[in-house]
Amino acid sequence: MEEKLKWTKLSSEYLFKEQWFTVRKDSCERADGKIIEPYYVFEFPEWATALALTEDNKVLIVKQYRHALGEVCIELPGGCVDSTDETNEDAIRRELLEETGYTFESVHYLGRTSANPSTNSNLMHMFIALGGRKTDIQQLDENEQIIVEEISLDELMELVDEKRIVQSMHLTTVFYALRYLDKIQFVK
């Protein structure tokens, strides 16, 4: 039944292509024969993020300016999966070290999410990192300016309650991490 919902791509044309952002225009056909054109798709690299806990159970948050919103945002550490990363776990461990200077005893995969599956082709891979220790200095990309803070889980929940974390995929990661830690449960 679900196969009847899938589209067939008839043609594709790249309109803009760079390392961090690519736009293509597709022509598609639905199973019922209806042609959908143009359909615009944004291609991004895969992303990885983590709720990162230190050895003493502090949550690492990062603050950085996000130009598209014109705001300094409170986020979880993370970033793009690079071609040099063998796995998504390698990517998040590298990103955690680069952005925060922390290494972690263990990293657990929580799942994947999409910013917008109607237009974006990529996924964000969610992790929880445990047992973090400050082992290095930040190794930021040329355009990054990141403030790292350690907060308690209660302070994290205050940020969520106050709706101060606007990055929706990071909120999704917080949710799955809290479920992993048995801090929230579904009512049956």
Rank of each mutant, 00 (worst) to 15 (best):
I92F: 09
I92C: 04
I92E: 04
I92A: 06
R94M: 02
R94C: 02
E95Y: 01
E95C: 03
E95P: 01
E95W: 01
E95V: 01
L97N: 01
E98R: 06
E99N: 06
E99R: 04
E99A: 05
E99F: 03
T100H: 02
G101A: 10
Y102A: 01
T103C: 12
T103V: 14
F104M: 02
F104G: 00
F104D: 01
F104P: 00
F104E: 01
F104W: 02
E105Q: 15
E105Y: 07
S106D: 12
S106K: 15
S106M: 10
V107Y: 05
H108P: 04
Y109G: 08
L110T: 04
G111K: 07
R112I: 10
T113N: 08
T113D: 11
T113P: 03
S114W: 05
S114M: 13
S114T: 13
A115Q: 09
A115M: 11
N116R: 09
P117G: 11
P117S: 13
P117L: 13
P117N: 14
T119Y: 11
N120Y: 15
N120M: 13
N120C: 13
L123S: 12
L123M: 10
L123D: 13
H125Y: 14
H125S: 11
M126A: 12
M126F: 07
M126H: 08
F127N: 07
F127E: 06
I128D: 05
I128V: 15
I128C: 03
A129H: 07
A129Y: 06
A129Q: 06
A129F: 07
A129V: 05
